[in-house]
Amino acid sequence: MKASEVVRNNVKEKLAREEVVSSMTVRLVRGVEIARMAATAGFDMIYVDLEHSTLTLETTGQICQAALSAGVTPMVRVPANTPEYIQRVLDAGALGIIAPGVRSAEEARTVVAAAKYAPRGERGAGGVLPHLEFRPFPTEDANAAMNDATMVIVQFESAEAVEKADEIAAVEGVDMVLIGVNDLLADLGLAGQFEHPKVRDAYARTIAACRKHGKHTGVGGLSTRPKLAAEFINMGARLLSTGTDIQFLLAAMIEKAKQAREISVA
């Protein structure tokens, strides 16, 4: 058996077929049950958000490994685009990283270098990996399989990033650009104006750059604007970040409380 026969990235496979990938974000739940629930719900991917949560690396690794077993692709958004975070979450079980706030091709290359083994990058050897079921494959075989399976997603959250979309998308090893609409709007001085023409322009420019270089675009920050998100999917984006576990739980709680209040007592 080869390492490539053990490690699989369903998200990369769906993207190669130009299918839409659904993702949910984990910020609240500490238990590994969230991975199985995501699979039952039908999500293709979960990403643990270490940028905007107090989740630990230990918890992150446990959730990622549970996701691997459940058939849901685990990603992690790191709090800083440094090897100290990138390599540790990948060794712990993530099949890819989301790098926030990337503004240049040089930053993107730094992220790729930390995420990929030589000759594609500079990721350090960490021994046997959960992605490979802790099997001791030959190093060359294991590294090649992990390089192929591991995704690098960079986030555009500024006008500067959109201006440099072409050169960032051209970076070898970058698989996807995920647009974080909320931070982008804040950077533009348009906080909360989701329907502003500059949002559509940012997506149009990013999708065009990604297509030119054989990469993909993801939609983020539009969980409350499903019609707008669908518009960008129809424009060519292929990943939809649907919201966080906090949003899902709160929405269900609000609905149940509303139902209880509306019961008429005879």
Rank of each mutant, 00 (worst) to 15 (best):
S158N: 06
A161N: 06
V112N: 02
V265G: 09
A257E: 10
N81T: 12
N147A: 15
D91R: 00
E167P: 04
E262S: 14
E107F: 03
L28I: 10
A67C: 07
E255H: 13
S158G: 04
A260T: 15
A202R: 03
V21N: 00
M1S: 15
A257M: 14
N10R: 09
A113W: 01
I179H: 08
A142Q: 14
T150D: 01
F156I: 06
L15Q: 00
E255W: 10
A145V: 13
E167Y: 07
M1Q: 15
A208S: 09
R88N: 12
T224Y: 08
E13R: 00
A209G: 10
K212I: 11
T40N: 05
D91F: 00
L50K: 05
A186S: 14
E84R: 06
V102A: 14
V177W: 14
P83Y: 14
P130C: 09
T82I: 11
A229G: 01
A41F: 08
M45Q: 07
Y85I: 05
L228F: 02
E19T: 05
E231F: 03
V102E: 08
V76H: 06
S23P: 01
V162G: 01
G127M: 10
V162M: 01
M151A: 07
T73Y: 00
A113Y: 01
R36K: 08
I153A: 13
E106G: 04
K164P: 07
V112G: 04
T54L: 07
I254W: 07
I233R: 00
V177I: 15
A208R: 07
M24S: 02
E160S: 10
L240H: 03
H131G: 12
A251Y: 10
R27L: 12
L250F: 14
E163G: 02
F43G: 00
M253G: 05
A161V: 06
N147Q: 12
A70E: 13
E195K: 13
R123W: 14
S22P: 02
E167C: 03
R225V: 03
E106N: 04
A105L: 07
M45V: 01
Y47F: 15
K258L: 12
E160D: 13
P79Q: 13
Y85A: 13
G101V: 10
D201C: 08
A161W: 09
G243R: 01
S241T: 06
V6S: 14
A108D: 08
I98S: 07
G189P: 10
G180T: 14
I63W: 09
